Simulated scan of single mutants.
Amino acid sequence: MAKVEIYTKAWCGYCARAKALLESKGIAFEEYDITMGGPKRDEMLDRAHGGTTVPQIFIDGSHVGGSDDLSALNRDGKLDAMLGL
């Protein structure tokens, strides 16, 4: 199964939607809460090539994008293969 990482903030509806999609597929993920900033926020900015919105999602180290991007992959039938399902 793929390693999934997601950078989130508290009270973020898009974050909740992305996590719910992953959970509906039974996918475990590592969540990094960057609500208060800190080194994980800087890490996200670097890994997401300056992307400042949340969530920022990575599957096996590859940047997927945000919640809409994750949903589009699912809608197009590409997400399951990326997740190793």
Rank of each mutant, 00 (worst) to 15 (best):
D42W: 00
K78I: 11
I59E: 02
S67T: 00
D60F: 07
I57N: 03
N74L: 14
H63P: 09
C15Y: 06
D80Y: 07
F58Q: 06
I59D: 00
Y14Q: 12
E5M: 06
Y14L: 02
A28K: 12
M36W: 09
I27G: 05
G77R: 09
L79P: 02
S24T: 10
V54N: 06
I59M: 03
G26I: 09
A28C: 07
V64S: 11
I34N: 03
K78S: 12
D42H: 05
E43K: 15
R75Y: 10
M36H: 14
T8G: 07
Y32C: 01
V54I: 15
L83T: 12
E30N: 13
H49T: 08
Q56P: 00
K3R: 12
L79N: 08
A2W: 02
Y32D: 05
T53C: 09
Y14N: 12
G37P: 05
D68F: 01
Y14M: 04
Y7W: 11
P39G: 05
I6G: 10
D76V: 10
D33Q: 02
I59R: 10
L21M: 09
G65K: 04
Y7D: 02
G61C: 10
M1F: 11
L45P: 08
E30S: 05
A20V: 02
M36V: 10
T52L: 00
M82R: 15
F58E: 01
D76G: 11
C15W: 03
D60C: 08
H63Q: 14
L79A: 06
H49S: 00
T8H: 01
M1N: 15
L83W: 03
R17D: 04
T52R: 12
A16C: 08
T53V: 10
S24K: 10
S71R: 12
L83V: 08
Q56K: 12
G66C: 02
L70K: 01
G38S: 08
T52S: 00
L70A: 00
K40A: 14
I59K: 08
I27S: 05
K3D: 14
V4Q: 01
L83I: 09
K9S: 10
V4W: 04
A81I: 14
D60N: 15
V64I: 15
L73N: 11
R17P: 00
E23Q: 14
K40M: 14
L22F: 08
A2H: 03
D80S: 13
W11D: 14
G61V: 13
A18C: 01
E5F: 03
D76Y: 10
G51Y: 04
S67Y: 03
E30R: 00
I59V: 15
Y7L: 02
C12G: 09
C12R: 11
Y14F: 14
I27N: 02
D80R: 06
L83D: 04
K19L: 06
C15N: 07
I6M: 03
H49N: 08
H49Q: 10
Y14S: 14
